[in-house]
Nucleic acid binder design. Sequence first.
DNA 1: AAGAACCTCAACCGCTGCTCT
DNA 2: GAGAGCAGCGGTTGAGGTTCT
Length: 432
Amino acid sequence: MTIVVHPRSKEWYFWHKTPIVCSGERGRGGYRKQSASWRFFEDRNVKVELMIEEMNKLSVNLALHACGDEVGRAEPDRIFINRRRRRRTKVESKKLMEMRRSTTYDEMGEIKKGPWKTEEDEVLLRHVKKYGPRDWSSIRSKGLLQRTGKSCRLRWVNKLRPDLKNGVKFSAEEERTVIELQGQYGNKWARIATHLPGRTDNDVKNFWSSRQKRLARVLLSPPSHQPPQKSHKSLREPPALQKVPPFEAPKHSSSTESSVTSPKALSCSSSYCEPIQMVPLPELMNPTTTNAAIESATGLLDQNQNQNQPICQFEYTTIPIEENSCNQPPLPPPLLQDFHHIPPPPPPLTFDTQDIFNQLGDPNFFAVFGQGGTADLSQFPFVQTGGEGESGGSCGREECNDPLMMEADAFMDEFPMDMFDHIEPLPSPSEW
DNA sequence: AAGAACCTCAACCGCTGCTCT
DNA sequence: GAGAGCAGCGGTTGAGGTTCT
């Protein structure tokens, strides 16, 4: 986290993954490190004391703009942080990128994070040339780069190492290899990568992860809602997904494991593996066969076929599916191999504004701010604490009394309309 | 044109195991 | 043998790009 101050506008940029813009007039009394909400910054390694001191010195008030994931509001003594996962528009993304490119920011002695610059790569390459790919931490101790040894090593291994197939998609052969080896070794990406020249463990991991997500989505999407590829996904399937020929792959031998929910069962650690015939992935795209295949593979068809609403149990979850889709002839069990590693369906959107307010209703939520306790709730304008307090004043609208009733956009409406007009790309440093 | 959904990939984090003192 | 430091690994996150609505 880095703090950037614009000398003219006195805007503060708290540089994390995304900037938070702070500007405006100072309230009476200046800032004090008082509110538990400062923890928000402390957790991000912001030098809070310095920040407060500087803010008081410059007489700037703090208002948090929505320029990324963090959204909040500030009052003279405290800051209210909310988090809102909002996808940036293209315009916002461009602005952000422009800001990042044009901003030179004070390192304040902190470790640099984020994307690598060409100059940094060059420094790293020079170091490796001279000393070999080792002593990563010495790069920082020698003052060559403000990066951790870990970060340097990662950069070298994943991007700078010679003979890497950067930007080259996995061939069908490579995909086959990964699938096969994953079945053999489990998620030992580094080990798998040793069989793939020019590929890193990160490459393999990313490939596998993408593939799993894709498969999971295909499996979880209701068959009846799959018109002749309304889902644009399979139109964009990578070639290998469509062309991977059948191949031999190990199979879990334990019949009891096939429907077990333990994640341990996901990897083929069993010593007894027998080769099975794999079904080409395009089969998975067929909604009429997929669910039946799952049922067949998990051995649940028999259990459920008498029920009115057929259920396809898949690993951890139970998925109601369309009646007719389970009446299709099942595929042979080998298809199971491909489903073993699919994670349970993701939870609902993790951290949107509604979640925030749900959490605000939970007394334990504020424990994360360190000073815990419901007594602190009064500091938060969106939480009804029973008493009147000053909290109500900061809200100014009756609907705010019920956090659960407050919509995300209503929260945004709390900001002055012109506040967001303030967000403009920083001028280039030369103009400062 | 704008937004949503999805994909890819770079980079970070936490943990583990190894090596050295 | 204990502890510190480091390298490596696997999981996760988030930015940016692409495609579709």
